[in-house]
Write a protein that binds this DNA or RNA. Structure first.
Lengths: 224, 224
DNA sequence: ACAAATTTTTAGATTTGTCTAAAATATATT
DNA sequence: AATATATTTTAGACAAATCTAAAAATTTGT
């Protein structure tokens, strides 16, 4: 028998913060780390984590930090999903620039309506990534950031390891060979041209400029 | 020198409620009326109206009820504008039915982003009425509910006085004549067919059924 | 006009989310 | 291992928004 708790805006924000912190160093998340992330005081965090623990959203033992429960992870992913879908909406439908969406999405992510999110998803064509290239959790809570993806889809400044090609034609493979790009190479996306979607990348010790056509045929796995 | 106060969600809701109550009986709005509208206690209302008065949003004298100031009216209209634009959005873009939009719009109306609302307005084609037929306040705070409008645009169950025609061709005037519809007549919109937009109306003591084409060529002024 | 009924306000308490300052616990150093 | 340092928790306070119960003011009825 599953109990459904109402989550306040603040509780949702804490869950989100804990999720993001846990994603990095994968040990228990400390009180002070949460305080820094949320721009608040450790004592406030202690109060909140007690409440979240009572609601079954996190595991908490005094002085030992916290980790998300199944429920908590599900709730956090649901909020992140909403945030990222709204970001796509703002850029695709409302002419926002990719770097001015965050603040508004922070507000929109707390709107409570399952139907609204389902329709939003549909309106946007079920996008898999947000305007920053971050993966959008699926409705059923799937969130595999390690899955291979196209080089065009990874966030700026992130690094991917080449794991395959979408186009396996001779001309494309020749291009890769000629430019010394091989499976296993690490590619960092330095910048993207607004104009044509072409990418400035760092590969090993050299940097180069590749077209959108090239990038959208290279599969990578995100590093770190 | 105008001071811009941050309005909390609760304050915004009170302003909206006061605006709607003032629109009806046009004397000072009583504490108990607000309490009933907001589903809260009179003592809570007293607390809140004091705060709103301090912020210059309402005129308040103990035991004498409240009225909106210029500032307060502007703030209320801004919230109502957002609410109604979001309602149009939900119906037009998100496949919501006109009778299931209210709850979600109540949440969306508090999102703070001028750019978002401007873009929303544009995306929707600068609509003048919401899905219930209610007038959407303009960006600059204009809100003339007494202006003439098409019979197709007034809310269900509301009554309008015929004040003119858009199409002044002989066939249309003949139709009106044949059906005993004249300037000065009061028409109440009883129901609207989803299918073809035709209207069931009450005119004097008889009721009749008119097509969307007829209704969209008759100007009325809203009564009461 | 004056008592009765109603409405409004005050006073004091509660909840959520926050803070500061002090106490408790854990970690690091020698 | 004992002490010093850093982190975490507790305790007490505050602001927003609400409540209940009691007091004050207004309105109503005859």
């Amino acid at each position: 028998m599953l109990k459904l708790f109402f989550m306040t805006r603040s509780e949702e924000n804490y869950l989100k913060a804990i999720f993001h912190l846990a994603r990095k160093g994968n040990k228990a998340v400390t009180t002070s780390a949460i305080a820094e992330q949320m721009d608040t005081k450790p004592s406030s965090v202690t109060d909140m984590v007690k409440r979240l623990a009572e609601k079954g959203m996190i595991n908490y033992r005094k002085y030992q930090g916290v980790s998300l429960t199944k429920e908590g992870r599900k709730a956090a992913l649901s909020i992140i999903r909403k945030h990222r879908l709204w970001e796509v909406f703002l850029v695709e439908k409302m002419d926002f620039a990719w770097d001015e969406v965050h603040e508004v999405a922070e507000q929109l992510e707390h709107i409570k309506s399952e139907k609204l999110i389902d329709q939003l998803d549909k309106l946007l064509g079920f996008p898999r990534y947000d305007p920053h290239g971050d993966l959008i959790p699926s409705k059923d809570g799937e969130f595999d950031e390690t899955a291979k993806r196209l080089l065009t889809e990874i966030p700026l400044k992130s690094t991917g390891v080449c794991v395959g090609v979408r186009d396996s034609s001779v001309p494309f493979l020749k291009f890769l060979d000629k430019n010394n790009i091989a499976l296993g190479d690490e590619i960092t996306v330095l910048d993207k041209e607004e104009f044509d979607g072409s990418l400035h990348i760092q590969i090993g010790d050299r940097s180069m400029h590749i077209s959108d056509q090239i990038a959208s045929n290279l599969y990578v796995k995100l590093k770190e």
